[in-house]
Computed example of a mutant assay.
Amino acid sequence: MTRADEDPTALSKIHAAESNHGKHWYTSTGQHVDNKGGKGTFSLFGAYVQRSADFSLLQTAVIRSKAAHAKKGTTSQTVEAGWINYPDHGKEPHLFSYFTTNGYSGDGDNIGGWNRDRKGWVQVDKDLYPGIPFKPLSTRGGNQHELEIGYHLADGNWWLWCLDRYIGYYPGSLFSQGVNAADTLADHSDIIDFYGEIFNSEEEVTTTDMGSGEWPDAGYGKAAYIHNIVYTDTKGNFQNYNGQSQLIISDAKRYNIKPSWNSASSWGSYFYLGGPGAGGKIGA
């Protein structure tokens, strides 16, 4: 067998394979605006994932892009939530939440983490919680099911809205330890995003689906979506979301998005998104 160090072509192939480990692919939208949260109605497909350490999600992220941080000067801070299939974190597709106080530089109690894995999340509802699966799920060409998900900053805390009520919160104090709260996410967000994301856990590029695996052009009944997307302005009023200024498509050959902002339809601002990943075959 020829060694990689003797064959530049072989070495190149190895490097190409290794470069996919830990990569993320996005179909992402974002709006730069001071806000106190937002929400949207998410489709509930059980996205196919190739490996248990891969994930496929639809989510919102409420961001303070240059928050004061006691140890690092400035960093990004977020509260995030959405719909995910991540077998290593739950056997079934489920509602998730995530927070970071330090720009994703490390998780830990009261620092950052998923769901209720780390201290920081305060549970209020007796039935609904980050990590809970919902059934039934949407099917391609069949019945469609959806869930309204969002965050709202109230009384200094970031409350997670799910189904028809607030289920718990991240205390604003998590984000303002040792610094002025007004300079952190404890006071307001300056970016709000809604998007799809794929995580590739191994060297070979993943065949994990985004949403249903259908392309956005397939439309209602087949493709995944988020509709009636709004943000909450600093006075507490809902405003139609427009994420065009921060539209990111990592690889249109695998995943894509089709937005409609401020539409005249009952869906308001919305988008379809999805794709079948590497290989182009849904569910494989």
Score class of each variant (00 low, 15 high):
D54Y: 04
L57R: 14
S65M: 03
T101A: 13
K66M: 07
V62L: 01
G82E: 06
S65T: 10
K66N: 12
A68D: 15
A70E: 15
H69W: 14
T60M: 01
L58T: 09
T74M: 12
L57S: 14
Q50I: 03
D88I: 04
A61M: 01
K66D: 05
H94M: 06
K71Q: 14
T78N: 08
Y98F: 09
T74Y: 09
F96Q: 05
P93D: 14
K66R: 03
G90R: 10
A70K: 13
A67V: 06
T101L: 14
A67M: 10
N102W: 08
G73F: 08
N102I: 00
K91C: 00
E92N: 12
T100Y: 06
A61N: 01
L57W: 05
S76A: 12
A70W: 12
Q59P: 02
G103A: 04
R51Y: 13
Q77K: 10
P87N: 11
R64L: 04
A61Q: 00
T101Q: 09
T100V: 07
E92D: 15
Q50V: 02
V79Y: 07
F55N: 09
D54L: 07
G103C: 07
D54N: 09
A61D: 04
A70L: 15
N85E: 06
A81Y: 01
V62Q: 00
N85T: 13
Y98Q: 03
V79H: 04
K71T: 15
F55C: 09
R64F: 04
W83E: 11
F99S: 04
S97K: 02
I84L: 06
Y86C: 06
R51I: 02
A53L: 11
T74G: 12
I84M: 10
S52G: 07
R51Q: 08
A53Y: 13
G90C: 11
T74N: 14
A70S: 14
T74L: 11
H89A: 11
T74I: 14
E92T: 09
Y98R: 04
P87F: 05
I63K: 04
Y98T: 03
I63S: 01
G73Q: 14
F96C: 02
L95V: 11
L58Y: 13
I63P: 07
K66A: 11
Y86M: 03
S76P: 02
G90N: 12
Q77C: 11
L58I: 13
G73K: 12
S56R: 05
V79F: 05
N102L: 05
V62C: 00
S52P: 01
F99G: 03
R51H: 12
Y86A: 08
I63M: 05
T100M: 03
T75I: 15
N85G: 05
F99T: 00
G73D: 12
H69M: 15
T101H: 13
D54P: 12
F55K: 03
I63D: 02
S65F: 00
T75S: 15
A67C: 12
H89M: 08
L95M: 10
E92V: 07
I84K: 02
T78G: 00
T74E: 14
F99C: 02
A68R: 15
R64K: 12
V62F: 03
N85Y: 01
S76G: 08
D54H: 09
K72I: 15
T75L: 14
P87L: 08
G82S: 06
F55G: 09
P87M: 05
S52Y: 09
P87G: 01
G82F: 07
H94G: 07
I63C: 01
H94I: 05
